[in-house]
Design a protein around this nucleic acid. Sequence first.
DNA 1: TCTGTATTTCTACTAGTATCGAAATATATG
DNA 2: CATATATTTCGATACTAGTAGAAATACAGA
Lengths: 115, 115
Amino acid sequence: MAKRKLDQTPRFADMLAAMGSEPRLRIVRLLLATHPTGAKAGDIQAELGIPSSTLSHHLEKLRNEDLIAMRRDGTSLWYTANVDVLRELLSFLYAECCTRSQVIAVEEILSACNS
Amino acid sequence: MAKRKLDQTPRFADMLAAMGSEPRLRIVRLLLATHPTGAKAGDIQAELGIPSSTLSHHLEKLRNEDLIAMRRDGTSLWYTANVDVLRELLSFLYAECCTRSQVIAVEEILSACNS
DNA sequence: TCTGTATTTCTACTAGTATCGAAATATATG
DNA sequence: CATATATTTCGATACTAGTAGAAATACAGA
């Protein structure tokens, strides 16, 4: 087994933690549902009924983990899901699946949702 | 859009939160790697270098979310990953992917790792 | 430039989570 | 039944995260 260049576990753990709260998971799902257009902060706030300051806090956390991206359009800020990063996360989870007991290739985790 | 029977979001958020800490993510990956045999608590402890009381705490949390299962064999407790539940989680994440903008079927998320 | 709208940053409080040594429990074996 | 091994439960501490009202910032339009 070759030496790992860099352990990605802490990074993916942080990503999972970022999605591991009900409001943030709802946000991510909303952005997946509206992908690739995304949604304005105000829309998210209206749909999920979260106070704007709290919402901003959550969006920042998701953005820190690179799970979502932001772009400005006038006074509105649009948020979109980073589906590539999400795919990366799922691949990581299953990358070592069963490697020590039986050989099962786990390729092509997801090919939907073109970014 | 039909009325939802029950909102699964809190449950899946808890599952993500359970995997959203570095030691627990390592545990899950170790159990995936050794699936379907699994590993004894002592083996996990040795491999990850976590004090037994701390490890026990983490294992309990993962078990509460049904991400792993436990069975006793003599004085040893064996833990295994619940790959079905993990698959369910991945499906949930992508279930509504792009539904509001373009129609992309997201079936067959994962067919590897037969439980 | 003044006004309104969209969103973030500041500040503070509360509650939950991670950690681990020590003691307790469960099982097996001589 | 006494002892050894495997693992959990107890208890205590330190840290981290979620929440939201109020103030600040960014942009657009008259």
